[in-house]
Simulated scan of single mutants.
Amino acid sequence: MATKAILITGCSSGIGLHCALELQREGYQVLATARQTQDVDKLIELGLTAHQLDLADPASVEAGFNWAVNQAEDGIYALFNNGAYALPGALEDVTRAQLKCLFETNVFGWHQLTNLCIEHMLEHKQGRIIQNSSVLGLVAMKFRGAYNASKYAIEGLSDTLRLELRHTNIYISLIEPGPILSKFRANALMQFEQNIDVNNSRFAQTYQKMLSRLKKEGPGMAFTEGPESVLKRVRHALNAKQPQARYYVTKPTYFIGLMRRILPTKWLDQLVKNF
């Protein structure tokens, strides 16, 4: 029986890297991708089959997909969309161009790659598409609006795909992580410093507190878990006969998911206002 191939984006660090290494150890043919060529070189040094794929570049997405098809021993069985970044800051401080740039990576690139994989999976009469969303795809939190919006978009696209792919043997699953140990916060800090005009914002003082949190080493908040918690859900989505539509990860996601269902909007706003 041929080894099942899984294409993973955003493998330079954190969740993507951990899942790529562990799934390869478990016998999957992992096809790892990253945006930067130096990160691809590092992945190859770690023993992974890797290729450059920039989700913001349509030509790069198509080339990366074609590479994966050529590498896959028996077709691409699964796609794990993971590559994404955050741009912290009040929405009034985020420009149209900045929001568009974020959506190119976090949404449009995912959509293009997903559609390419769907066509391929339909030919092979099976497939798993796993979308790494977020607790911020379930509830909005201030100063996270750009990332919130991108994850809300992924939630909507995935829910629609699940309906449209019924009876095709292609399953769509959303992973909903809360705080996970990774370089995500460090990358968000870099995006903030490069894009947000702190001195000319009415939130200048608030941003100073936010910067302290972003610069903090180690877990950013209570109940932070390691990337192995995400791997556990990815593994189930890959192997289960009937994978779940959504997989919550970390206690904050379970808590927020429950409160979102039972609380009026005004009460939910009060609950998340200090996050």
Rank of each mutant, 00 (worst) to 15 (best):
1 M>Q: 11
6 I>D: 03
11 C>F: 01
14 G>Y: 00
16 G>L: 08
16 G>C: 07
17 L>K: 02
17 L>N: 07
20 A>R: 00
27 G>M: 00
28 Y>F: 12
29 Q>A: 04
29 Q>L: 02
32 A>M: 10
35 R>C: 06
35 R>W: 07
41 D>R: 07
42 K>H: 07
45 E>I: 10
45 E>M: 02
46 L>H: 00
47 G>I: 00
47 G>W: 03
49 T>W: 00
52 Q>P: 09
52 Q>D: 01
53 L>M: 12
53 L>T: 15
58 P>W: 13
63 A>E: 14
66 N>P: 01
69 V>A: 09
73 E>W: 05
73 E>F: 01
79 L>K: 03
79 L>S: 06
81 N>G: 13
81 N>F: 04
83 G>F: 08
83 G>T: 02
84 A>L: 05
86 A>S: 10
87 L>S: 04
90 A>K: 05
91 L>P: 00
93 D>I: 00
99 L>T: 03
99 L>A: 08
101 C>H: 15
103 F>R: 01
104 E>M: 13
104 E>H: 07
105 T>K: 05
107 V>K: 01
109 G>R: 02
111 H>L: 13
111 H>V: 12
115 N>V: 01
116 L>G: 03
117 C>E: 06
122 L>E: 07
124 H>Y: 11
129 I>L: 11
130 I>V: 06
131 Q>W: 01
133 S>C: 15
136 L>K: 04
138 L>Q: 12
139 V>P: 04
140 A>Q: 06
141 M>C: 10
142 K>F: 01
143 F>M: 09
144 R>P: 00
145 G>E: 13
150 S>T: 13
150 S>V: 02
151 K>M: 08
151 K>D: 01
152 Y>M: 08
153 A>V: 04
154 I>V: 15
155 E>Q: 08
160 T>R: 02
165 L>P: 04
169 N>P: 00
170 I>C: 06
175 I>W: 09
177 P>C: 09
178 G>T: 08
181 L>E: 13
181 L>F: 04
181 L>M: 15
185 R>T: 15
185 R>V: 14
187 N>G: 10
190 M>V: 14
191 Q>Y: 02
194 Q>A: 15
200 N>G: 14
200 N>W: 07
200 N>L: 09
202 R>E: 11
204 A>L: 06
215 K>L: 09
217 E>T: 12
222 A>G: 12
223 F>L: 10
229 S>F: 14
232 K>G: 00
235 R>W: 12
236 H>T: 12
237 A>D: 05
239 N>Q: 15
240 A>R: 10
252 P>Y: 00
255 F>L: 14
257 G>L: 10
258 L>M: 10
260 R>G: 03
262 I>W: 05
263 L>T: 06
264 P>V: 04
266 K>Q: 14
266 K>A: 12
267 W>R: 09
268 L>D: 10
